[in-house]
Structures are given as C-alpha cells and as structure tokens.
Lab assay of single mutants.
Amino acid sequence: SAVVMEEGSPGEVPVLVEPPGLEDVEAALGMDRRTDAYSRSSSVSSQEEKSLHAEELVGRGIPIERVVSSEGGRPSVDLSFQPSQPLSKSSSSPELQTLQDILGDPGDKADVGRLSPEVKARSQSGTLDGESAAWSASGEDSRGQPEGPLPSSSPRSPSGLRPRGYTISDSAPSRRGKRVERDALKSRATASNAEKVPGINPSFVFLQLYHSPFFGDESNKPILLPNESQSFERSVQLLDQIPSYDTHKIAVLYVGEGQSNSELAILSNEHGSYRYTEFLTGLGRLIELKDCQPDKVYLGGLDVCGEDGQFTYCWHDDIMQAVFHIATLMPTKDVDKHRCDKKRHLGNDFVSIVYNDSGEDFKLGTIKGQFNFVHVIVTPLDYECNLVSLQCRKDMEGLVDTSVAKIVSDRNLPFVARQMALHANMASQVHHSRSNPTDIYPSKWIARLRHIKRLRQRICEEAAYSNPSLPLVHPPSHSKAPAQTPAEPTPGYEVGQRKRLISSVEDFTEFV
C-alpha cells in the first residue's frame, strides 16, 4: 500500500504489510482489554486508547508507543517513533504512522508483537499521559499493580500540603484535648505513684524565703500560729474566702420596643432579638451553673441549684474572672410580681450592659438600685453597626469618660462592650471603697496581704499580753509611738528610695 506524505515531511518511507502472525497476537491482546472507555466527539468514531511506554525494544532499544483501536470491530496495532508526526486519522481507513528506516525489517515488528510479559508489566506500571491515566485505574490494570491496600497518609489540604495544625504542634487546635488526655493517663497511674504529687513543697518555699535578706529584721520574721485558738483558725479560714484573682460581676439587660421607661417590662423579658443573642455568645463562655464549683469559678452570688437559672456566661484571663448576670437567662416566676429574684442580683451590680433595642433613649435610673454606678448603652444600628456610649452617676464623672461614643461592628461589639464594662467596674470598686478611707481597694491579692498582716499583728499583741517580758514586734495601731529626735535631713532622693524599699516589703498600697 502507498502512503501520501504530508508537506514538509521527509522522503517516502516504505511501509510494510503486517504479517498475519502479528495480527493474531494483537487480536488476542485486544480481546482481554476493556472496550468501555469514554466516548469521543461525534466527528471521530468511538475508540479506546491506552498509551504504553516501553523502555527498550528487543534487539533495537527504541521507545515506541502502542495504540489499540477497535475500529470496525477489528483491533489494530500502531507502532510509531515518538519524534515523528502521525498522519491524519479517518473512520474509513486504518491508522497509518511513519516509521524510521531502522524499523524497515519486518522481523523487528514480529519481535515487538512478542514482547515478554516482563516488558508489558513494566510498561503498564509506568506513568501514563492524559486520558490513558484514568483508564489505567480500571480493573483491567489491577493485575499489573501490587496486591494489598496502599499505606494511609496524613490529611492533605486542597493545595496538596499538610495542614498547619499537623506541622506545628504548639498551634494545633487540639492541644488542650491532648492535655486532658495526659491528665487522664496520670489519673490511671499505679498505686505506688499515687503518693507522688507534682509541684513545689510549701515548706521548701518557706525555707528559701526565711533565709532571704527580706527577713533580716525582727519585724519581718515569720511567727508560728497558735493551734489552740479558734479565733485565729477562723481568720485563716476567712483568708480562703478572698480569692487571689480579681472578680467582676456585670449585669446584662435587654430593652425591647416600648420598654425604655418600664423597669418591670425590662426585667420580665425572657429572650431578645437575634443580634442580641449573637452578642451574648461573644461576651464569654456559656457555663452550666450546676456543674460549677464556687471555689474555682466566680459566680457573683448565683445559685447553683437552679434558683437563678441553669446557664450563664463568664469570662476570665490570667488575673481576673468576670460573670454576667443576664436577665433573660434568669427564670421569670409568676409568684414574683416585682421580679425581686432578678433584681437582687442586677440591682447590686456596679455596672450594667444595656442592649437598647427600643429605638428610644434609655435613662440612668430606670433600673432603681443603690449600686448602679455605670451603664454601657448598646444601640443597634443599620448595616451591622452599633452605637456604644457610657452613662454614669455624677459622683463617678471624674473616673469615667462619658463624652466619647463609639461606632462598632457586630463582630467586635462583644469585645468592646466587655472591656468598657470591666474598666468601669474597676473604677466603681475604687469609688465605692472611698467610703472607708482606711481600706482603699487596690486588688484582691493586696486584700489578702492586708488580712495576713492584721492576723500577724493580733498574734503579736496576744503574745505580748500573755508574756509581758516579750517586746511587741508591731505596736498596736491605737498606741502612739514614742517621740523621736529629728534626724539629720537627708537628700530627698535617698528618703524616697528608703521609703520605697520599706513599702515594698510591708505593703503595696502607695504604689497603687
């Protein structure tokens, strides 16, 4: 048969007729292969192709491409040299491709048809291009793949890379869960390890502090508590009631339409708007009261037996805890006409967050109470924005700035309102402590230090009264110190430094 060459192609190359033996071998191979691939376009007849790359030819070592076609129900084999250009295909004639002069020997084609199974398996396991790669995943090629499931790999992101949580363990979102698992493993320790309690022994800490320079003076030496005195035992138990972190309780009120001037209507609300609910979820963490331990979680007086509701929101960081007394989460009882059960919590909070959804101005004093010092007013606006402002009593104007209003988005509203309420509550605590000038409020841990110092002074006084020969370590507060001759004046800087060093040991009130 003659071949018409394309323009620009090399000279004529004689194409030899395939021997009958080659056709029989390739026909047997075509019957084993699956003929249901995917359909081509209507211009080209339905056909199945599979590209198999052999590394070497037997005796020649030339890479070839073998295409199996099922045109007219008769499979045909096409061998081509890759750099050459194939002729145009037609549905009426068999596929013809040019070969190099080196394939002119018909014996070479017979060798190609009689490829060993080793070469076929190696060509099938190679990388296939384009559409033949999808075909190689079918059941027909499963014989050339190794048996057994593939090893499982770690989760992959859409980009093909490992997620960040699997790369950096410290930033993994499941870090707290692993800590819980470690605690569970520790709890399952053997009885021999049960006595080993991690941490620092208080006796060891005391020993280090006792021999430090801070205890060089007799006034700073630790003293032993009497065991037989019940009054001192009660004082030590009272110390446990003062937490070592700051605590805040903040009221949250929802004002519906037409309720801006009605205290009873505001306290009777059992739910609010959708934006109000989203605002609550951002204030803190939802907790169930019956599962809380009052000595570990500050509840601000809420009952854990269901008297004040089942849930509330709280927030904490390293040095403070805040609980929100939310009116809509507290039960509304029919027998309580004046809502006294709610007001006994909300009316005693220094700061209230008022979500004013009424469309009218909310005035300070609508919720009557002796300790309502500051109101954080949240007014929802259009386009997911809110107006946040402050209202306070006249005696609080020096501590709280009420002249600045803020426009905040719904997303950042819980954070801004919480921070403003916490700052206002700190100012309210300082303002409330002014009624007792001898006990200015600095912080909870300073209050613990003052309680310890008062307890020490009482013990020293009782020891001096029981044994008059012992001198008083600290003179009583009601006694007057003996007159001392004025010492020589020293520079102001040295006096300030000495006073600062003494105050650092005794108390921190002056620095606050």
Rank of each mutant, 00 (worst) to 15 (best):
I407C: 07
D318K: 04
N348F: 08
L225A: 15
M420Q: 04
T490H: 12
K363L: 09
V374I: 07
K249N: 15
R458C: 15
L364V: 15
Q457I: 05
F279C: 00
Q429K: 12
A327M: 07
V430P: 01
G300S: 15
E218D: 12
M330A: 06
P331R: 07
M320H: 12
S466R: 07
D240I: 02
E233V: 11
L387M: 09
S466C: 14
K444F: 06
L264C: 10
P476V: 10
V252G: 00
K363Q: 12
Q497Y: 09
E257M: 08
V495H: 13
Y313R: 09
L390A: 05
L413P: 00
S260F: 04
H375K: 03
L413N: 00
N220I: 13
S231K: 07
H338T: 14
H474A: 15
A424D: 01
G347F: 15
H271C: 13
R456W: 08
L253I: 10
S389W: 05
P226H: 12
N220E: 15
N220D: 15
L472N: 15
L381W: 03
L299A: 15
S358P: 00
Y254C: 00
E461D: 13
A251F: 03
G309C: 13
D291I: 06
N261A: 11
P471Q: 11
D410Y: 00
L283I: 04
V376Y: 01
S389T: 09
H478I: 14
D357E: 07
E307Y: 11
Q310R: 15
V376W: 01
I459F: 13
R411I: 08
F508Q: 15
R434W: 08
E510N: 10
N269D: 02
Y383F: 11
H451T: 14
P331G: 05
D410P: 00
V354I: 08
S477W: 09
Q230Y: 13
H271A: 09
K444S: 07
T277Q: 09
G359I: 02
K342F: 06
I326N: 03
E307H: 12
E510H: 09
V388P: 00
S229H: 12
P243R: 06
D382H: 05
C460K: 06
K363T: 11
L399A: 06
H345Q: 10
D317M: 01
D291P: 09
Q391F: 03
M396K: 05
F508M: 15
Y313M: 15
G256C: 02
P491S: 10
S428L: 08
F232M: 11
G347L: 15
V378F: 00
S479R: 10
L422T: 03
F373H: 11
P442S: 06
R458Q: 15
L264G: 09
D334R: 15
G359F: 04
R450D: 15
S435D: 14
V255K: 01
I242F: 08
Q391V: 08
V252A: 01
D303R: 15
L413S: 04
S260C: 09
L238C: 07
R285N: 15
M420C: 06
K249V: 08
L267E: 03
M330D: 05
M426L: 10
K394M: 07
E397F: 06
S469Y: 11
V388S: 00
K221T: 15
H431A: 11
Y441E: 14
G258V: 02
A483L: 08
L470F: 13
S260Q: 13
G272C: 02
A427S: 04
K333M: 10
N436E: 14
G258W: 15
D336Y: 10
T328H: 03
N227G: 12
E270R: 05
L299C: 11
C392S: 05
K290E: 07
T379V: 07
D336Q: 10
P380E: 00
G496F: 06
G258H: 13
D401Q: 06
S273K: 01
R450K: 07
Q237H: 10
V376T: 01
V495A: 14
K221N: 15
D395A: 08
I407K: 02
I319W: 14
C392K: 02
V404K: 07
P380R: 00
G359E: 03
P437C: 05
L289G: 13
H474S: 15
Q237V: 06
L449F: 07
L280P: 00
L455I: 10
E263Y: 05
G492M: 12
D240H: 06
D401S: 05
L238R: 15
L283R: 00
C340W: 15
L455N: 11
H316R: 14
L470M: 12
P294Y: 12
L280E: 01
Q310L: 15
L387Q: 06
Q484A: 12
I326G: 04
E461L: 10
A483D: 14
L286D: 11
E270D: 09
A327E: 04
P294A: 13
H474G: 14
D246V: 06
Q497V: 11
P471K: 10
D341V: 10
T332R: 07
V430A: 06
N425C: 09
S477E: 15
G309F: 08
I367Y: 05
E218K: 09
K333G: 10
G256F: 01
E257G: 04
H338E: 15
M330S: 06
I242C: 07
S428R: 02
A424W: 03
R448N: 12
V408W: 01
H325F: 04
K406A: 15
V252T: 01
T247F: 12
